[in-house]
Design a binder for these strands. Structure first.
Lengths: 137, 137
DNA sequence: TTATATTTTGTAAATATTACAAGTAAGGTA
DNA sequence: TACCTTACTTGTAATATTTACAAAATATAA
């Protein structure tokens, strides 16, 4: 059990949020998670969602993305990978990290202690980009 | 004149904000810019700072960073480069882009249209990291 | 100099996040 | 199992950031 390992108590709220993030790899916002889980558990508080997301991210269970300036997004995938935000449909895509963040080693060698690394890209996703090119034709 | 080229009117407020960002490469927040410039120009409105930053970033004159979830930061340096945020002193360092964002070409080849690319790193800056290591000794 | 579109300003509203205190529940111990 | 302690959840209120809006002011072109 991942929560016990981290010294966190196993509560229904934490389990529900983790299950939701695991099954819905759409990088949801706090409000999105809250709205979805509130339906099954009406007593859920938004403060709880904030608390759980804080606890999980501080313990390295999940990632919190700041790719969008309006709100934070949550990612259950904790392996190093980049993110792409489509300016048209708003979707967030995971990008395989083919370069394995080589630059991190470079930064470390300069004297920094690197704890977290994020690659954020914005533009048009494959689907929206295809639609756009067809319009031009 | 960079503003005219972009079809933006040349106003004292825009010039002041651009000069401030040019001379103070500290990645200031909206509130920081507002507080500093308000001293010399008491009639300055925070809405104006938001408007100007929006206009400048939409026209590619400056960059807006979302490395910090609590507020946006402004960077006059528009060349591609990464950013490092120190968790101890809060400073933001520019990082030379030695790898020249090779990954952008990779992402483009997968069918995305890439307009913006950001590399964000967090940890301890060189100065804070040195202090920390001395404590351990 | 004048006309027009753009920009600035201040206030108010919307939105996201945090603080806090009281109630509740998890997990260890006997 | 029952109890105890600590950690967690909840709701409300407070804070902070950002946006909306309309009136006043200004930049630029004719």
């Amino acid at each position: 059990m991942i929560l016990k390992k981290k010294g966190l108590k196993v509560t229904p709220q934490r389990l529900e949020i983790m299950r939701y993030l695991d099954k819905n790899r759409i990088h949801p916002s706090i409000d999105h998670i809250y709205t979805q889980l509130k339906m099954k558990n009406p007593s859920l508080s938004k403060t709880t969602v904030y608390n759980v997301i804080d606890d999980l991210s501080e313990n390295g269970v999940i990632q919190v993305l700041t790719i969008n300036k309006s709100e934070i997004l949550c990612d259950f995938n904790n392996d190093p990978h980049h993110h792409f935000m489509c300016k048209e449909c708003g979707s967030i895509s995971d990008l395989e990290d083919r370069y394995n963040f080589d630059i991190i080693e470079q930064i470390r060698s300069e004297g920094f202690r690197v704890d977290e690394a994020f690659g954020y890209f914005r533009g048009l996703c494959i689907s929206c980009n295809n639609k756009n090119e067809k319009k031009v034709d």
